[in-house]
Write a protein that binds this DNA or RNA. Structure first.
Length: 417
RNA sequence: GGGGGAGUGUCCCGAGCGGCAAAGGGGGCGGACUGUAAAUCCGCUGGCUGACGCCUUCGUAGGUUCGAGUCCUACCUCCCCCA
């Protein structure tokens, strides 16, 4: 892959940082982005109360779009979430209630302010919600005006549909309509804001192309598609999943400390790639860090963690997380910033297994026992091998807490109150 | 409407002569080795219990049996073939 094959900053940056999977009509889009400000959008469905690391890639594309002088639209899928995108899913998601969608939308919307500059801060970014136009559609009018341009023969050939049909899994008529609504969104954003480019993950290609066709038919307009690759770790795992669940972007779901830790634990082979995608560090700086060998690469991982955490949680929270990690892992010190659980029924001679369950480190006494047998539980950094170990009042440190550690990385401070 | 097949440890896939807490794999967790990495190796992976043991689990509800994931009946869900 050769760099700098584009004239526009926008495509150059996306290409050199590894964001591009497919582009429709790259030359035409490049010329347009070179000569004028392009308005582009990405849709985000409101299926969860927050976006997670998996969506970060999309958000970064909007970020670079705005940074290179164009206009990003973050489209909230208030309407499309009521339908449910079948792309990439092998079974239909259960329907979400209106109230839940509304709730989720609030959580998701909040994230964009950290990456994009909206009008309230003098920027040109736009926040839209497709519920605004989709909820008002009249069925017969919609069929006549829009539905006439969609060929069932073609729709059946799309991956999102074919997957379900091939596997003989249910695909409801409701979901079948998703791609039509998404195509309509594209056209609507063109009408309202002159939007001619839709970005998205590679699984969205089919849906986006539908929008391009519709734009041509309705307005004889030239629309563009640009998709990003599906990012997996070098070991093949999908991004954003850990034992504890998804790595959410909202701080109330995943603390800045845990978020920092997620990135700190990146595999060696992924560090450079992730720095290009998930930080705003200049490429030259990244190349310099890429030269680090062996254990030194940990320094690069810390920078990766701090930079990514800064984007989402702010520079200060990121520095704090880095410091907590440094104190905990490199000095073995007891940092007051570790997750702390207040325990009101603590008493001397409390069983360790009960305490471990109480602070949420394990979910049952049996699990705690197995862990102790395997040497995986520590009290104040000392491995305990006796299942019936009792905590004593002298286990409480001068800071007024007992540090419980599961494995090498999960620390919890038990605070008697 | 007729005929056939399937639903297993609530993470997933998947074996299972009437004695089964139920093979195996993936995933996950812990340990060793390292660098808070990857790979590799070892251990664990229903609940309660110090332990004997007890309790709860194989789509749902009944039944046969000393004993049922395994046999019988009804029901639910999914799939295939014929109409």
């Amino acid at each position: 892959m050769t760099m700098s094959t584009y004239k526009s900053d926008f495509l150059n940056i996306l290409a050199s940082r590894g964001f591009i999977h497919q582009v429709s009509e790259p030359e035409a889009l490049d010329a347009l982005a070179h000569s004028s400000a392009v308005t582009a959008y990405i849709g985000f469905d409101c299926t969860a109360p927050s976006l997670h690391v998996g969506s970060l890639l999309s958000i970064m594309m909007l970020y670079w779009l705005q940074q290179t002088g164009h206009r990003p639209i973050a489209l909230m899928g208030g309407g499309t979430t009521r339908v449910g995108d079948p792309s990439g899913k092998d079974e239909s998601r259960k329907l979400l209630t209106e109230a839940l969608i509304e709730e989720n939308l609030k959580g998701i919307r909040a994230i964009f302010g950290k990456f994009l500059t909206f009008a309230d801060r003098g920027g040109n970014a736009i926040m839209a919600n497709n519920a605004e136009w989709l909820n008002k559609l009249n069925y017969i009018d919609f069929l006549r005006d829009i539905g006439r341009y969609f060929s069932i023969n073609r729709m059946l050939a799309f991956d999102s549909v074919k997957l379900r049909l091939d596997r003989e899994q249910e695909l409801s008529f409701l979901e079948f309509n998703y791609m039509i609504l998404q195509a309509y969104d594209f056209v609507e954003l063109y009408r309202r804001y002159g939007c001619v480019l839709q970005l998205g993950g590679s699984d969205q290609w089919g849906n986006i192309v539908n929008g391009i066709d519709l734009g041509r038919r309705l307005h004889n307009a030239q629309f563009f598609a640009l998709t990003s690759p599906l990012i997996t770790t070098s070991s093949g795992a999908k991004m954003g999943k850990t034992a504890a669940g998804a790595v959410w972007l909202n701080a109330d779901l995943v603390s800045p400390y845990d978020y920092w830790q997620y990135w700190r634990n990146t595999e060696d082979a992924d560090v450079v790639r992730f720095m290009k995608l998930f930080t705003t560090l200049p490429l030259g700086e990244i190349e310099r860090l890429a030269a680090l060998k062996g254990g030194e690469i940990n320094e690069a991982k810390k920078i990766l963690a701090t930079e990514t955490t800064s984007l989402v949680h702010g520079r200060e929270a990121a520095a704090q997380a880095a410091e907590t990690a440094r104190a905990t892992f490199e000095e073995g010190a007891l940092s007051a910033d570790l997750p702390t659980v207040e325990v009101s029924d603590f008493h001397p001679r409390m069983r360790l297994i009960d305490a471990a369950v109480r602070v949420g480190l394990v979910s049952s006494n049996g699990e705690a026992r197995r862990l102790i047998r395997g040497g995986g539980l520590k009290v104040n950094d000392k491995t305990i091998s006796d299942e019936s170990h009792l905590l004593e009042s002298y286990d409480v440190t001068p800071q007024g807490v007992i540090k419980l550690t599961l494995g090498r990385k999960r620390h919890v401070l038990l605070k008697p109150v």
